[in-house]
């Protein structure tokens, strides 16, 4: 069975550029250098000993760095996927072929995220160093990678949707970054604010049960930063209410559900005969 032509073309274009290999090498060099420097300094500080417990700190820092990377790179990779075709005046030609609009959108998503998947998989040996010294359970490493994949899917779907909706890549990119920031920092700020509001007249850590508690619970189960904290065992805010799903279940449901809906909407926007004015064909 032959690979989808759009996906194959995108992979050709992206991976034959030498800058792709250089970017990957640079990223690994920075993260790897950081890990090795951390271990070296720890060894020097403890006069020839390395405390395996410190591996946990490396794991946390590595994971946060990867999440920041996802938030910065994925929207940039996906926000021009469709609008770029439109700007190059190649979209109309694609739409007159038997390729389906759904096929085009999914191929663009896969091709745009393939680079990120390779970057994240390439960091496995770094996690291996952390793992070698102990202190981390295999389930935590796997859980972290699952979290990265889900988050990447959601961020990529956001970028693709912006790229389908906006005609210009510049606008699409800015909006994608804005939405990712809103999803991470915006909801994070809202959680903290509502948590404080919910604790009025209640000095203990638990919020007053009620509407606000439900809002905070929902928000922290869709916020990537809070999910990362949960995976790292830091825990979130005790709202006293539960959605009835483990945190990873509700987060997975949110990422897949919203991501799929965004992609369906994106492919609907590509329906060639419905968007004559937006496409500005002539």
């Amino acid at each position: 069975m032959e690979l989808n032509p759009v996906l194959r073309k995108e992979l050709y274009q992206r991976f034959r550029q030498s800058k792709t290999a250089w970017l990957l090498a640079l990223y690994l060099l920075v993260l790897g250098g950081f890990v090795l420097a951390f271990i070296y300094l720890n060894w020097r500080y403890n006069q020839g000993y390395y405390q395996p417990g410190r591996s946990w700190e490396i794991f946390v820092i590595l994971s946060v760095a990867q999440l920041v990377l996802l938030a910065f790179v994925v929207p940039g990779l996906t926000a021009g996927a469709i609008s770029g075709e439109r700007e190059r005046q190649t979209l109309n030609v694609l739409l007159t072929t038997p390729l389906t609009h759904r096929g085009i959108v999914w191929s663009k998503l896969l091709a745009s995220t393939a680079f990120m998947v390779i970057i994240i998989l390439a960091t496995l040996p770094l996690y291996g160093i952390v793992f070698m010294f102990g202190g981390i359970a295999p389930g935590q490493v796997l859980g972290m990678f699952g979290f990265f994949l889900l988050t990447m899917f959601l961020f990529a779907a956001l970028g693709i949707a912006c790229s389908s909706f906006f005609k210009r890549t510049g606008v699409s990119t800015v909006t994608s970054y804005g939405l990712v920031l809103a999803l991470t920092g915006g909801t994070g700020f809202l959680i903290a604010f509502l948590n404080e509001v919910g604790k009025v007249n209640r000095p203990e850590s638990m919020m007053n049960p009620g509407f606000l508690a439900w809002v905070v619970e929902i928000l922290q189960e869709i916020n990537p930063i809070f999910i990362l904290m949960e995976i790292l065992g830091e825990g979130g805010i005790n709202t006293g209410v539960s959605l009835g799903l483990p945190y990873w279940g509700s987060y997975a449901l949110f990422c897949i559900g919203v991501g799929v809906l965004l992609l369906i909407w994106s492919s609907h926007l590509l329906l060639p005969q419905r968007n004559s004015n937006r496409f500005n064909l002539k």
Binding site: N92, L95, T96, P272, L281
Partner: peptide, 9 residues
């Protein structure tokens, strides 16, 4: 032409 090319309704 765009109508014939199925790009417009």
């Amino acid at each position: 032409m765009n109508i014939l090319a199925t790009l417009l309704l």
